[in-house]
């Protein structure tokens, strides 16, 4: 056996550039922001500097932290339901064309109707606020998983499917051995989008619920702080929300890499 064996690719990826460059930009912007606030003596109730926001974050942590946990819970739970629901529905779609044809349009309708327009109704009908928020977050989050996974399940190699037929494979075997693993990269792509959307859905619904607020998520903190003109706390909550979004995105990117690094082009590092 002496066919040419490809060498493993060298890994001189400029990792520090990928992390360092955006980090440097961020630091420069923060310094410029702080300097601008100080030089122009802008009062904190109009535009607080980053230091004052950090101070607020530490001082109000006892109220921000529970809100963060609350928002995270709703987001995570909505995402979980979106994953289970989106994936199962995609499998159902892949198993019978008529189901896909009859249900997909409604999934699209649910997706294209802005969540701010649906949220008030849901909040009216559902007594438990947490469940109402959950439903809103789910509605926005499930579509990318559904549509991506459906495409993935349908894009199996036709020769491989023929081969399975030759082996006398049953439908569930074709699904489980060929279609599902092949759909994984598509599913993970959908998951990455859905993660961000679940957070957006949770926040938007909380804004809509607004005053009804036995809720204590981050959006509620922003609303509450705005009524009291506590601008630094609005910023602190805002930073926590974007931080959460970034964290969700990064962890799914990491998951994507972990699961696909040995076989899928999207997760393989290249030279040069």
């Amino acid at each position: 056996m002496s066919d040419d064996v490809p060498r493993p690719r060298s890994r001189r990826d400029s990792l520090w550039l990928k992390i360092g460059a955006p980090l440097a930009i961020g630091i420069v912007v923060l310094i410029a922001w702080e300097a601008m606030v100080r030089v122009n003596e802008i009062p904190w109730y109009i535009l607080p500097g980053p230091l004052s926001i950090a101070e607020t974050m530490v001082r109000d942590w006892h109220m921000l932290w529970p809100s963060l946990v609350n928002t995270l819970q709703v987001t995570a739970l909505a995402l979980l339901v979106a994953v289970v629901g989106g994936f199962s529905l995609a499998v159902l779609f892949a198993s019978a064309r008529w189901i896909e044809l009859s249900l997909f349009p409604y999934a699209v309708i649910l997706q294209v109707t802005p969540i701010v327009a649906i949220a008030p109704l849901i909040i009216v009908y559902v007594d438990n606020l947490t469940i109402a928020l959950l439903i809103c977050a789910w509605i926005v989050a499930f579509f990318p998983i559904l549509s991506n996974t459906t495409i993935g399940l349908n894009s199996a190699d036709h020769n491989l499917l023929d081969l399975m037929r030759l082996y006398g494979a049953r439908r569930w075997q074709i699904l489980w051995f060929i279609r599902v693993p092949g759909a994984l990269p598509f599913f993970l792509g959908g998951l990455r989008i859905s993660g961000g959307l679940a957070l957006i859905g949770a926040i938007v619904a909380e804004f809509v619920a607004g005053g009804a607020g036995s809720g204590s998520g981050l959006a509620f903190r922003i609303l509450e702080a705005s009524y009291r003109l506590e601008i630094p706390r609005m910023y602190a909550a805002l930073f926590l929300i974007s931080g959460t979004g970034i964290l969700i995105f990064l962890s799914f990117t990491g998951l994507n890499h972990l699961l696909l690094r040995r076989w899928h082009e999207s997760a393989i590092r290249r030279e040069g």
Binding site: D157, L163, L166, F177, P181, G182, H264
Partner: peptide, 15 residues
């Protein structure tokens, strides 16, 4: 089961 089939492309499961 008594047939084996080999295509022009290797047709492997990349995963």
């Amino acid at each position: 089961p008594e047939l084996g089939f080999v295509f022009q492309e290797p047709t492997l499961m990349p995963w």
